[in-house]
Design a protein around this nucleic acid. Structure first.
Lengths: 336, 336
DNA sequence: CTGAAAGCGCTTACAG
DNA sequence: CTGAAAGCGCTTACAG
């Protein structure tokens, strides 16, 4: 592979001139520039990006820490991230942590060792302040926390209003006439669970209804955990007439389990989800859910990171993106 | 951030010794090594990987070209790739091409510009031979083609036997008593479509049945396209009693459409999928499908790439991984 | 507008 | 076992 040196000798100029002709064309005289470009063409020369990055102390890569890329929600957020990263000239290193702290640490080493310039963290698992230590004193930590956000304003955050979105869904259910509403949450430690639960409880209280802890089952956002949670609910002393699942997979799993028990949705039991992944629309019945702007979440997060990386921003604002209650066919008034 | 120079002065040795103490500890005397390690500790020194990579002309990163990371099938293959990449010390750059040739080219530039050492191509869209040109004459192109494979043995391939798997599914359907079987394929240009169709037609002919082109609809592997294909099938002169969809999403979309038309699966019409993504098991009814070893496909592909990168292999063998016919509840004998 | 030179942070023959 | 030196392929002040 030819190097800048080969081009410079073929064109009869110094390597500095070649470098300039490529990076700041207006700095070199037209005839010289042409000569250089011809040599580049003739040799099929490509600047060695590794050398360039090394020189400029930038990796032009970011790592995204995702709990599970197999989850369609995260897959779409990552897609959004990638779109703007590519436009901005950054590569995205995939850090699928699968809940392993060791893998997470491994990925964070990519920034410690200067292989990545920044990180988008799609979970609140790591303390952003600890994360910030990865950057040397002088420079602003290039971190953005998206989707599942920590309770700090140490770094910019991009998220939805989980409390309000969950409240909207519960109000929908209550409006339909439901009084006993089951809930299938995410992991207890997740801020997502806490916020959505707060929204739900708020709606219940505002309607003068009691929130029943016995009808609140902890899931892990998987289809199977929704299935299992439904089973618990089936055995509850006073079975709920509606179940609010904190993501679509769990809702789909729950509907499946209810059906196996002879309960049809929504005639016998209403089931609602959260996220609005593609499968929600094609579920049977089509799922009532909260639509999250998945790609936009990703694009926004990457946009903010690009700003930080470009020195155009360093404050730690929070972006709250709008959600939408999608009423479809999995929820209805309870049977009389 | 401290550099190797800082460590060397603190430890009172040359930078060469620091480098050795870190990379080939047995090459330096025990007391010296200890001194170096203490200095490393004291300064919280981390070797600059970018410098190291630049020096050694290796990026320790590979790019995976995936048609769509939002597709659970690819997401899981990528997860498998990532697992072994991380163990092997490689980062994975995500190249979600979304069918755009421009984006694909953009990602391939990562290897031209030496930011990636190899590529795993999850589609047959690019001619591997053209791809191979990215490598300079002397060195072996570090490419592996997985899942959707081209008809060349230019590079190693990791795949399943699509013909046999599709034949097995069609035999299952035929065995159930179906005579008119509809097919929802992937894009016509895809080798996946061609092979699975060949398997299906082979099974039909072996059973003395005619394959009806009118009952073969082209889809694009999305839920929506399965839905739309089902609609076409509904209007067919002689409606099929079973439909073989070339992936699970399309099967789920088709079942949805049939149900909307008042046809229930499998009582009125059997529907089969392909892949066995998580949603297949939780579909309503649970989907009869072909299970592909998604993670293993990814892990194998990355293993082969690691071998090539490590100079341990260069031949272009093909790995054919086993599949499994999963008979669940979406297929049954046709109504009498 | 152009070139000579320094240097980014490492690694690795080459001596000793 | 250790050090001085060269060099990986670029970019960028600094002169001219």
């Amino acid at each position: 592979m030819s190097s800048i040196r080969d081009v410079s000798s073929l064109a009869g100029v110094s390597v500095a001139t070649v470098s300039r002709a490529l990076r700041n064309p207006q700095q070199v005289a037209e005839p010289t520039r042409t000569r250089v470009l011809e040599a580049v063409e003739a040799l099929d020369y490509r600047p060695n990006q590794m050398a360039r990055n090394f020189r400029s102390r930038q990796a032009f890569a970011i790592v995204v820490l995702a709990p599970d890329i197999g989850n369609p929600f995260f897959a779409r957020v990552v897609r959004g991230i990638e779109q703007v990263a590519q436009r901005g000239g950054y590569a995205v290193l995939l850090g699928d942590t699968q809940g392993s702290a060791a893998r997470e640490a491994e990925y964070l080493n990519l920034v410690r060792s200067r292989q990545a310039d920044g990180v988008i963290q799609l979970s609140a698992r790591i303390d952003p302040v600890a994360l910030g230590k990865l950057w040397s004193a002088g420079s602003a930590p290039a971190i953005v926390n998206a989707c599942e956000c920590a309770d700090t304003d140490f770094c910019p955050r991009v998220r939805i209003d989980n409390v309000a979105a969950a409240r909207a869904m519960s109000e929908h259910l209550i409006g339909l006439g439901h009084r006993r509403i089951g809930v299938v949450t995410g992991p207890a430690a997740s801020p997502l669970t806490r916020d959505r639960l707060a929204g739900h409880i708020g709606a219940m209280q505002a309607a003068g209804l009691a929130h029943k802890p016995a009808l609140t089952i902890e899931g892990d956002f998987s289809l199977q955990s929704g299935f299992d949670a439904a089973e618990s609910l089936l055995h509850a002393a006073n079975r709920p007439t509606a179940v609010f699942c904190f993501n679509d997979e769990m809702a789909i799993g729950a509907i499946r389990r209810f059906k196996a028990a002879g309960l049809s949705t929504p005639a016998d039991i209403s089931v609602a989800g959260f996220d609005d992944i593609d499968f929600a629309r094609f579920a049977d019945p089509p799922l009532t859910t909260i639509a999250q702007p998945m790609e936009v979440l990703g694009r926004t997060a990457m946009g903010v990171l690009l700003d930080i990386l470009g020195g155009r921003r360093s404050s730690s604002e929070t972006h709250v993106l709008p959600t939408n209650l999608m009423v479809r066919e999995s929820t209805a008034s309870p049977a009389a």
